[in-house]
Amino acid sequence: MQDVLDILTEIKPEFDFSDSSDFIADGMLDSFDIINLCDLLEEKYNVTIDGLDILPENFTSLNSIQSLIIKSKGESK
């Protein structure tokens, strides 16, 4: 979880991601941030994120991002 938080902070250092329950609704991540985040997560966790999973609802919180990584790990095997 800390790794994801570090990546988010790397992308948007101006925000405190530990203090939000919805990164999208709070305006912390936009569509380009999600693209950057996908690229960094794929690099960090050596996974391939399915294009159909690149939806705002999968990037709203640390938990949803963590779930996406776990799902992608399963599909990348």
């Binding site: 992308i11 380009f32 941030d33 693209i35 950057n36 690229d39 960094l40």
Partner: peptide, 14 residues
Amino acid sequence: SFTEKQSMRLKKVM
């Protein structure tokens, strides 16, 4: 409206 760091990453990814 990107920061320079965002831009450099998008340059690679996009």
